[in-house]
Design a protein around this nucleic acid. Sequence first.
DNA 1: GATGAATGAGAGTTCATTCAT
DNA 2: TATGAATGAACTCTCATTCAT
Lengths: 245, 245, 245, 245
Amino acid sequence: MVSTRGSATDTGTAAPESSTPAKRAAGAKAAPAKRAKRGNGTSLNGERARDREVIETAVQIFWEKGYASASVQDVADALGMLKGSLYYYIDSKESLLRKIFEDSHSEIVALTEFVTEVDGSAMERLERFLRDYAMWTLTHLERAGLYSREWRYAGPTLKATLTEQQTYYDTHLRDLIVAGQAEGALDPQVDPRRASAFIWAAYTGLPDWFRPSGRHKAEDVASIYVDLALRAAGRYSSGSPYSTS
Amino acid sequence: MVSTRGSATDTGTAAPESSTPAKRAAGAKAAPAKRAKRGNGTSLNGERARDREVIETAVQIFWEKGYASASVQDVADALGMLKGSLYYYIDSKESLLRKIFEDSHSEIVALTEFVTEVDGSAMERLERFLRDYAMWTLTHLERAGLYSREWRYAGPTLKATLTEQQTYYDTHLRDLIVAGQAEGALDPQVDPRRASAFIWAAYTGLPDWFRPSGRHKAEDVASIYVDLALRAAGRYSSGSPYSTS
Amino acid sequence: MVSTRGSATDTGTAAPESSTPAKRAAGAKAAPAKRAKRGNGTSLNGERARDREVIETAVQIFWEKGYASASVQDVADALGMLKGSLYYYIDSKESLLRKIFEDSHSEIVALTEFVTEVDGSAMERLERFLRDYAMWTLTHLERAGLYSREWRYAGPTLKATLTEQQTYYDTHLRDLIVAGQAEGALDPQVDPRRASAFIWAAYTGLPDWFRPSGRHKAEDVASIYVDLALRAAGRYSSGSPYSTS
Amino acid sequence: MVSTRGSATDTGTAAPESSTPAKRAAGAKAAPAKRAKRGNGTSLNGERARDREVIETAVQIFWEKGYASASVQDVADALGMLKGSLYYYIDSKESLLRKIFEDSHSEIVALTEFVTEVDGSAMERLERFLRDYAMWTLTHLERAGLYSREWRYAGPTLKATLTEQQTYYDTHLRDLIVAGQAEGALDPQVDPRRASAFIWAAYTGLPDWFRPSGRHKAEDVASIYVDLALRAAGRYSSGSPYSTS
DNA sequence: GATGAATGAGAGTTCATTCAT
DNA sequence: TATGAATGAACTCTCATTCAT
């Protein structure tokens, strides 16, 4: 069962403040059941054809230039449309950022929840989480980079949401470390609170240097980061580190 | 081996991208040499009375709002002057950022160089560096935060300089780790390149949560981070960690 | 004397500024005569099924938000269709306004003409007109309000037409007052020109405060306004005013 | 003494939501008493040199084109500056409208209050008010026209304020009529509420046709309108009407 | 040193309108 | 009939920067 530790998950995903399509509905006259959610060019979750394309492009541009420096024009250019046209897909520049963040959040939450369901020791779950999260970061470099770097440029409401989300992740990691200590697999002298922050920050550095086109495979980098993180977390030395992957 | 002193410092300071005079020289008219940069009530290094105040205020504002979101107006407001007046002290908004970065760079380079002169084992030097850098970050939270977060918003020239500086720090830390391994004090199975990046990124997380007004003393936090970093770097467990401070 | 019938009506309706077909004719290519304006399920006067609905909805929206503030989107929303679809019914936003104005004009002209045919004294005709026009305003609040308030936002051509129409009404009312004076029923010291403008403007205030759902019946309000208007026009006091209704 | 009938006056004039100059003050650092209110190019009430010019020009443009149709560009053009420069003087387009309305309101309130202080019968005060208000309208045609026509395009907050102000005027006029009836100078069969609305609306028609350059003097038009208004209000016929001016 | 006014480029956003399907 | 996507122009507003005083 999916126990999401209360409201944390909802925070980000709930109340998505109505993205694009439903935008215009509040009219009078009882409109004849506008826009059936399926069967007319829209996919399962109500996204229209280019919705994803728009978001992915924005991720790219925002990460390259920085959210604040990137203009709506830049995104439109990359999409090959006029900036005015872009507003058919988005509500505002910040709503784009919000959508991007929401996507990231859901994905990380999914990771998180998956791990809690995994059978095995706390250490196995911790390692699994560290690996999954590293892999997610490495396979979603730009999105992950944005998520960890650009919250400073979010408006107050969005920023509040993001802070809550960060707290959720941090708590999750801390709990895993605490469990590892309880199991006797991690040095109890390590402060779980600090270790969690330390590791989390260390992971956010990945998008700064990793290049998927480079000579290092994402899996290997993930293994290395898991090892480094577990060392920081106080794992008692257990022979060769890279036996896991 | 780490060749510092000369070259390292220059890296950041060299090519200051022409302050005012050079700029004016380009104009044909031979403008009447507006203001001599030194010799009339300026301190040693060419700084005028409120130059420092301007920079420190900018650090504060840029960190609070993010460089790209902060306006020159914001800085001027905080200084109690009109934005027009601010241009008596600065050449451009980015030059302010550059100056801030240059200051940070010099200070970190000083730390770096000091450590290379210290007598003692590689591990002692490594630990000393990790502690000094943690303390610098903790005592210059905003400046340190800006330096590690906002380089994305620098212009191409400045960005290139910053990349060079980052490489320098990274190399320095890596060399210390390598030396530690050579000494037999660090687990050689740890990849110094990754460990360096890992630790460096972890440290940049400090300004996000540490509050000097909080109940944790900077010295204690520094000790904890040194410990976490050394664990990640593969220090062979050596009894109680916090015996150093 | 008031020469009406033919000319007056034409004033407003003439020069309808080329609806779609004419426009297309201008294009060289000989486009395939998109849609025949009549003959396929249209009522007598060339109006298609939802044409009226479109107009009435537009009246509502334009009055609520102001013509200039209301968007085509707003109207489409209220109709439960997409704004693109609305252009099947209209040629342009302003053409909608024009149509609304034309309708108002025809109706007021009808009132006007009816009165000229009525048997009785000038005063009876004047009173009848004042009452009919008050009733029309009170039963077409939004349309009447638009007509008197939003001509400022019409394009130059339409504005010229509207001015002509205003002049026609004004002349009509003035003539009635003059006739009343000639009959000896109105104080000749009253300037018919000013009285006409005064009364006309006073009437345009009705949509600002009258609410059909309120406790005042339209008929009563009409009677009161007729009385006020006749007083302003210089009616010699003739006992109790409200004996008419 | 100036008795303003309670809060009505304050409503519009109080809390002017900080007009232009003080805009930037909330900075930190205890700025050295920014902008002394007098002696450095600013007039008594804190207005800078071109502030008035800006407002008067805006009145002109807004009246000619309609507030919603007029662009900030239009106003700037008329002032001979770039639209960006205009924002040195104003906070927003609507704030300009607000300022204009505030000015109108204060002036009308002044009229109103003056009349309450005048010695004499209720009828004399009523007549005086009708004349003064007519004269104000005639000498401030555009401003008066804007005030009575364009409130529809104000934002919700401003609109609420305007409604309150309208109520205040309306009440004032109604009270004068009631007093006139009590004095036995006005026909008590006239409904003061309706008469007030009727007259007020009639007056708002003035800017639509009066041209100061025309052959009618403002004073004469005012006299005529006073007469028409008093007739509507039920003045018992008292010989020749134009004896007042 | 500092002010106040102005510049000019560009940002995000809205909107009437078009058109292939 | 209606949709959904796109256009392009205009709009309000912001901001780094300049400069005469």
